[in-house]
Simulated assay, not measured.
Amino acid sequence: MATRHPPDQAPDRAPGRAPDRGLDSQGYIAREGALGLIQDDFRPLVAAARDRVLDAFGSRLTAAYLYGSVPRGTARAGRSDLDLLLVLSARPTEADRGGADVLEAGLDKEFAQIDGVGILLVDRAQVLSELETYDLGWFVACLCTPLLGEDLAEFLPRYRPDSLLARETNGDLELHLARWRGQLAAAGTDADVRVLVRRVSRHLVRTAFTLVMPRWNGWTSDLGEMAEAFARYYPEWGERIRGAAAVAYEPVADRGALASYTEEIGPWLAAEYAAVHGVKAPRP
């Protein structure tokens, strides 16, 4: 039975946000994105990606999905990247990764509409495993748009914006912090730093949002909206997360910002997350 909140405890609504907050009529996270939302500028790119994925992986391909700004219809020509998730029938090999690298480079070179291509490779058993139900499984069911093959969302549960989902999606920030410190030390050029700023800031904003997601009672992939939702509950960190959202969209080569992420707000966020939601189940 759904919990009834007294008026002073009811989840508040973000200004300008639809009452559903990304949820369906039963309170489950609605799948975002659709092929019909893809802007005209990006349709030739998606058609080429679909054909080349089939050529490269053939019968080994179980499913292909789009995710990110392109299937949400919010991509910016010349600024956004193309994100693909490929589900194979067996565990991806080094040869599969090599094939994906070739696809990424070819599409990025040929289509000026995008600034980079990212292809994730997983296998069907991994997506449908119990361990990944509230992480990779949720990602496929709620954030990915079917492009080719079967839709594995049919075999997955429906998801609410609850503490279990928060824990299993982003409850491993501590592990990322150590990795980011090493990557910052190894970043030799401004371009390297900008790439790292973009990646780290996006991850921090999403983690900050999922920390408060059950209280906010909804889902969004808009980084600005994520930052505002977080700031409602942790105003003392609000400007820092708003700043991270801004540079996630317009990355700069700022080593100081990265150091503040890994040494100040990151450690606080990891500790607070563990205290509120617990730690993500270990992966092999």
Rank of each mutant, 00 (worst) to 15 (best):
Q183P: 01
Q183V: 03
E110Y: 08
D108K: 05
G149P: 01
E130I: 00
S163C: 13
R124A: 07
D101K: 14
E130Y: 04
A112F: 07
L131W: 11
A112Q: 08
P161Y: 05
R158W: 07
E130K: 14
D162N: 14
S201P: 03
T210K: 15
S163Y: 06
L143H: 06
L147C: 10
V195K: 12
W180D: 03
V197L: 01
V205Q: 08
K109Q: 12
V117T: 15
D115L: 14
N170R: 14
D162E: 10
L131C: 10
E154N: 09
S129R: 12
E154I: 05
P161E: 09
A153P: 11
T133R: 15
V195D: 11
G188V: 10
L184P: 12
E132I: 00
L143N: 09
G149N: 05
V205N: 10
S163P: 01
L131E: 14
V205W: 03
D123F: 01
C142D: 04
C142N: 09
I119L: 10
V127E: 02
T189Y: 11
R206D: 01
L107E: 00
D115R: 15
T210I: 00
T133M: 10
E104V: 11
P161Q: 02
Y134C: 08
R199N: 12
D135T: 14
T189L: 10
L143D: 05
V140S: 09
A112N: 05
L143F: 02
T169V: 11
N170F: 13
Q126M: 13
W138T: 02
L103Y: 05
L152R: 11
L173P: 02
R158E: 12
C144Y: 00
R124N: 08
V200E: 01
T210Y: 13
L103K: 10
A166M: 08
S201H: 00
A100I: 09
G106T: 09
H203P: 00
A208Q: 00
T169P: 04
Q113K: 03
F209H: 07
V200Y: 06
E154F: 07
L204A: 11
A208R: 04
V102R: 15
D108T: 15
E104L: 00
G106Q: 14
L120N: 12
I114M: 04
R198M: 11
L148A: 07
K109A: 15
D135L: 07
L131T: 05
R158G: 04
W180S: 04
W138V: 09
I119E: 01
T210E: 13
D108I: 00
L148K: 01
Q183D: 13
